[in-house]
Design a protein around this nucleic acid. Structure first.
Lengths: 182, 182
DNA sequence: CGACAATACGGAGACTGTCTCCGTTTAGCA
DNA sequence: TGCTAAACGGAGACAGTCTCCGTATTGTCG
């Protein structure tokens, strides 16, 4: 890629991250282009769809997911507490941008989605936590990590749409956790 | 209301119901107006926001909700089966239109939403089923009917977005049910 | 019945966001 | 330094939302 192209691409992603944070994932793309000092054509050449741009914005966030899963695995306490802790972190992770939970959870399991790699990272991070609990024979084994991601993602989606805080979300996560534990 | 106004209003609702069913809740309102043979101004005078129109479209559906809850109460089988049966019916009820689960579940508990009455009907229908199970001391009592509506609505929202069929939804509903039962 | 408010209609058009096309510019290489 | 492939960017087509206001219709009252 030519140096100027790289420069523009980086600036677009940077601006997009900020605008998405302020206005949610349905912010105007032309506005992002303008703020980045490029024409709409340039933005759309780099990112043909909104999801492609979102995917780029999420790039940095992947490491954060891995780290959070590591912490959840090392978390002290019983299985229920560890599972709940991960669920809360999961909700937090996918709720950084308004509309994020719906976007991410909707793309979960969709092989054709532009953000599929991000979903896979999330899903496998959750899978690791789940595997740990399974090794202790603490959770039922007829449920896949995809299903768990969808369940918790569903809670996060509702919380995002209804603007609930984590405190209001906790009891719902408890129900899911208790339904999952043996 | 003037007779011609009533006539137009009825026609708009009828057309909207059909278009929403075919295209989902984000169909073009101007198109609905055109198909109903009225100008956009007329549509927007009757229904200032999209949600107001959706609310009108849902009017007939209210009785169906009540009926379904009655059936669920009379359903034979143990608590788990009855609860699951209601959950499945609930998902079916709010999934008649694409985008419906998100719309309805997002408005749940929002006193200012134009579709609040519909949400209340749903919530109280679910409350009746829950109360029956509570009377049998079958479900935990630290969870409100609003929280249950959000949990199941969250599952429905994800299923709608990912185009999952009821068969794929069932295991997730089982987790929620098991987390709820004592 | 006929006229006159009051009520309702409808469509032109302003506005916003998406996305493309293509003439112009620029980077990087030879 | 000159050339070419790559990249730019903005005008503008298109679609959806929503409003304004001149026009038409309704229903009532003398």
């Amino acid at each position: 890629m030519r140096a100027d192209a790289q420069r523009n691409r980086d600036r677009i992603v940077e601006v997009a991250r900020q605008v998405f944070r302020e206005q949610g994932y349905d912010a105007s793309l032309d506005l992002i282009a303008k703020q980045a000092g490029v024409g709409p054509g340039t933005l759309y050449r780099h990112f043909p769809t909104r999801d492609d741009l979102i995917d780029a914005v999420m790039q940095a966030w992947v490491h954060h997911v891995e780290e959070t899963a590591d912490k959840a695995l090392a978390h002290e306490g019983g299985p229920r507490e560890r599972l709940l802790n991960w669920f809360e972190e999961y909700v937090r992770l996918i709720s950084v941008h308004k509309g994020g939970p719906a976007k991410i959870t909707g793309a979960m399991g969709d092989e054709a989605s532009p953000i599929r790699t991000k979903c896979q990272v999330l899903q496998s991070a959750g899978g690791r936590v789940l595997d740990q609990l399974r090794a202790e024979d603490a959770v039922r084994d007829d449920v896949t990590s995809l299903q768990v991601a969808r369940l918790v993602g569903g809670v996060a989606t509702v919380a995002d749409a209804s603007e609930l805080d984590l405190e209001a979300v906790r009891p719902m996560l408890e129900v899911v956790a208790d339904g999952l534990l043996k």
